[in-house]
């Protein structure tokens, strides 16, 4: 048993070390070399623009169900649906917008990055890059990391808007709340630092998704089965890491008075 634990411990330490080396390599490449804009824009469009439909659908329904549940619950407690706008606004801007968008992107983009890089690894394309004078972290990792890092916060702001709009639809059409009340509930009680709170977290989530997917992709071995495992691992690890880090990031941001 202790033998088993020791091996797992070594494994974890080794993995963390390798991740740290890759991240250092990423930052060194970003700072020292010119980023290939063509590759960056291709990834930005894949991560940002192509994610719009799924982010729109998930966030509008999140906003709608949130308004519905808040409205009914408060109706039970206070006999009328009070503060629906405030609850929807706070929940979406601080938590659900950034977290749901990050999870959708982890599923969509994390999986595709891991599968793509993993396939390149098992078919020796990564080795081929090296032999042709190209650092794979710079050529493949940097555009993906930067695109995720810049697009996820933008997607988050977009998702915030769509979610609040979803809440508005349900609040006015289903709960009979006047539109002005819904918007005043949001505007009077929510400051800009609430939005900043959510967006700052989404930068961290983007780094988690991109780093995990790139690391797992570059480490893939064992043919088609290995690629499958890498893809699953990228999604599962990013999702768990997003939810765990969310708690700590929120606590830290609140302690610093942001949101």
């Amino acid at each position: 048993m202790s033998e088993y634990l020791r091996e797992r411990y070594y494994e974890i330490v080794e993995t963390l070390g390798e991740v740290a080396i890759m991240v250092a390599d990423l930052f060194k490449s970003i700072l020292r070399y010119r980023v290939d804009l063509e590759l960056f824009f291709a990834q930005a469009s894949r991560i940002g623009v192509d994610s719009l439909p799924v982010v729109s659908i998930t966030s509008i329904f999140v906003g709608m169900v949130l308004a519905l549940q808040t409205g009914y619950s408060f109706q039970n407690v206070f006999n009328e649906p009070l503060y629906v706008g405030t609850v929807v606004g706070f929940s979406i801007l601080k938590e659900l917008g950034p977290v749901f968008t990050a999870i959708v992107v982890a599923g969509r983009i994390g999986a595709s990055i891991a599968a793509e890089l993993g396939t390149m690894k098992v078919t020796e394309q990564i080795d081929a890059l090296y032999t042709l004078g190209t650092n794979p972290v710079r050529y493949l990792g940097v555009p993906r990391f930067l695109a995720a890092f810049l697009m996820l916060p933008i997607l988050t702001i977009y998702a915030d808007g769509i979610g609040i709009f979803g809440g508005y639809l349900v609040a006015t059409a289903k709960l009979g709340i006047p539109a002005s009340t819904y918007w005043n509930d949001i505007l009077n009680n929510i400051d800009i630092d609430v939005v900043v709170h959510g967006v700052l977290k989404s930068f961290a989530f983007a780094a988690i998704v991109a780093t995990t997917a790139c690391y797992v992709g570059f480490k893939t071995s064992g043919g088609a089965e290995g690629v499958g495992q890498a893809t699953t691992q990228a999604v599962v690890v990013s999702m768990v890491a997003i939810l765990i880090s969310d708690y700590f990031l929120s606590a830290i941001l609140v302690a610093f008075g942001i949101g």
């Binding site: 078919t123 020796e124 394309q125 080795d127 081929a128 090296y130 032999t131």
Partner: peptide, 23 residues
């Protein structure tokens, strides 16, 4: 350094088993 390694690597052309073309 990486540059030094690339310098040596540029002396080599590598034909991989599965060709390893960038798809």
């Amino acid at each position: 350094s990486e540059e030094e390694l690339f310098e040596t690597q540029s002396k080599f052309g590598f034909l991989f088993q599965g060709a390893a073309l960038f798809d």
